[in-house]
């Protein structure tokens, strides 16, 4: 069942691949200018898109590059968010510090969850992760933990004001923080995928038996990938808690897992940057569907989803790759 995950190798992800400097440069310039062109709310939305992109990238490292399903990444997102919220609310930690801490806590949680999950593949893993996704919000709500988590009411997270030497609004500041974190996370992912570890991850995805016989410690890599994937998602969760200034169990239901999953597939499972489009999609399209018709918004969202899969069966990244091959042939 592990082979169910689409495993067409991305031609660019080969040994010694180079970062396309020009494209990345252009992307950074555009990304840096945008906050001054957009209004406050658009800035806030852009920040959320980038946060989703980080979480989607985390999911994709697990599913796209290592062939393990997860329908429970909302759980890691929640753990990251609650770690940040609890540290700020109860212990007055500086918000900036809580972001990496949220990631690390999730890394440990993901690694530990990955250990028993090793025995499960495909559908079974999907069910186990799903169980995790369902369990976490219920645990957060549980009366036993109310003192810590705030129960159903959740917790408020207060952001410190923008430092005076920065000529930025609060939304702009957090846009840039998210932008910087996203660039770093994408850079790490790029290096990971193009490293020995990355090749081991993909070898396990494509042919676990062959990978094992070549001496790849499949169990360790699979658990580690789970950890890394959770790390990404936890970072995203922590940032989301801070940017939204609030956490509550109902923000992290199973639907969030589904949304992240959709974002991953629509963005394209065999690329890193597809996650950005995925984030854009899951933030904007549901709102767009709501605009068209409130009563039927889900139906419209569903139709759009199906149409997108028709047009882009391998996601946006798949289409771009195809175009790239076609154009190269023409030239």
């Amino acid at each position: 069942m592990a082979t169910d995950v689409e495993t067409r190798a991305d031609p660019r992800l080969t040994v010694g691949a180079k970062i396309p400097i020009k494209l990345v440069g252009l992307f950074i310039i555009i990304g840096a200018i945008l906050p001054f062109l957009l209004g406050g709310y658009a800035n806030f939305q852009g920040t959320l898109i980038m946060i989703y992109a980080i979480a989607i990238l985390g999911l994709n490292l697990l599913t796209g590059f290592n062939g393990q399903f997860s329908l429970g990444h909302s759980a890691f997102y929640a753990v990251g968010a609650y770690t940040a919220a609890i540290l700020v609310y109860h212990l007055d930690w500086p918000v900036y510090v809580t972001i990496p801490v949220g990631g690390v806590v999730c890394f440990i949680a993901g690694f530990l969850f990955g250990l028993p999950a090793l025995r499960l593949e495909g559908l079974y893993l999907a069910l186990a992760t799903f169980a995790l996704g369902v369990a976490v919000p219920q645990i957060l709500k549980s009366s036993h933990l109310e003192g810590l988590t705030g129960g159903v009411q959740g917790l408020d997270v207060f952001r410190p004001p923008v430092p005076e030497f920065l000529p930025l609004t609060m939304d702009q500041l957090w846009y840039y923080i998210a932008f910087g974190v996203m660039l770093i996370m994408f850079w790490i992912a790029w290096n990971l995928i193009n490293s020995r570890t990355g090749r081991a991850m993909m070898a396990i995805r494509d042919n676990p038996i062959a990978a094992k016989s070549m001496g790849v410690n499949a169990s360790l890599y699979k658990s580690l990938t789970f950890g890394v994937s959770a790390f990404y998602t936890g970072i995203a969760g922590a940032m989301a808690a801070i940017v939204i200034e609030f956490v509550a169990p109902d923000s992290f239901t199973f639907q969030l897992s589904i949304l992240l999953f959709i974002g991953m597939v629509v963005g394209g499972t065999n690329s890193i940057w597809g996650a950005i489009f995925g984030g854009f999609f899951i933030l904007t399209v549901p709102n767009f569907a709501e605009e068209i018709s409130t009563g039927l918004s889900y139906a419209i969202f569903g139709v759009i989803l199906i149409l997108v899969i028709y047009v882009l069966p391998s996601g946006v990244a798949g289409l771009v790759n195809l175009l790239r091959v076609r154009i190269r042939k023409l030239l």
Binding site: D4, V265, T269, F301, G302, I306, I309, S314
Partner: peptide
């Protein structure tokens, strides 16, 4: 189309 894309279509059908 890849299986993951099918899953997304299932989700689309659920919504519809």
């Amino acid at each position: 189309a890849p299986v993951l894309s099918h899953v997304v279509v299932f989700i689309g059908l659920v919504a519809i």
